[in-house]
Simulated assay, not measured.
Amino acid sequence: MKTSGNLYQTGEVVTISKTEEPVTISKYQYIKHMKKFSYIVMEYPNTFYFEEELQKA
Score class of each variant (00 low, 15 high):
1 M>G: 14
2 K>G: 09
2 K>D: 09
3 T>L: 14
3 T>Q: 12
4 S>P: 08
5 G>I: 03
5 G>Y: 09
5 G>R: 08
6 N>T: 07
6 N>H: 15
7 L>M: 13
9 Q>S: 15
9 Q>A: 13
9 Q>I: 08
9 Q>F: 06
9 Q>T: 08
9 Q>Y: 05
11 G>Q: 07
11 G>M: 10
11 G>R: 08
12 E>H: 13
12 E>I: 05
12 E>S: 08
13 V>E: 12
14 V>S: 03
15 T>C: 12
16 I>K: 07
17 S>H: 02
17 S>C: 10
17 S>M: 07
18 K>L: 10
19 T>Q: 02
20 E>L: 10
21 E>Y: 01
21 E>P: 05
21 E>A: 06
22 P>A: 07
22 P>V: 06
22 P>K: 14
23 V>D: 08
24 T>C: 10
24 T>V: 12
24 T>G: 05
25 I>M: 04
25 I>K: 04
26 S>P: 01
26 S>M: 15
27 K>R: 14
28 Y>E: 05
28 Y>M: 09
28 Y>N: 14
29 Q>R: 11
29 Q>I: 00
30 Y>H: 12
30 Y>S: 01
31 I>N: 11
31 I>P: 02
32 K>D: 12
32 K>E: 06
33 H>N: 13
33 H>A: 11
33 H>L: 10
34 M>P: 00
34 M>S: 08
34 M>Q: 13
35 K>E: 10
35 K>H: 05
35 K>Y: 00
36 K>N: 09
36 K>Q: 10
36 K>D: 01
37 F>M: 00
38 S>R: 13
39 Y>K: 04
39 Y>N: 03
39 Y>D: 01
39 Y>P: 02
40 I>K: 07
41 V>Q: 02
42 M>V: 13
43 E>P: 02
44 Y>V: 00
44 Y>A: 08
45 P>T: 07
45 P>D: 07
45 P>G: 04
45 P>W: 01
46 N>K: 12
46 N>A: 08
46 N>G: 12
47 T>P: 00
47 T>K: 15
47 T>R: 15
48 F>K: 06
48 F>E: 09
48 F>S: 14
48 F>A: 12
48 F>P: 00
50 F>I: 13
50 F>P: 00
51 E>Q: 11
52 E>W: 03
53 E>S: 02
53 E>Y: 04
54 L>R: 03
54 L>D: 06
54 L>F: 02
54 L>I: 01
55 Q>P: 03
55 Q>R: 15
55 Q>M: 14
56 K>M: 01
56 K>C: 06
56 K>Y: 06
57 A>K: 14
57 A>E: 08
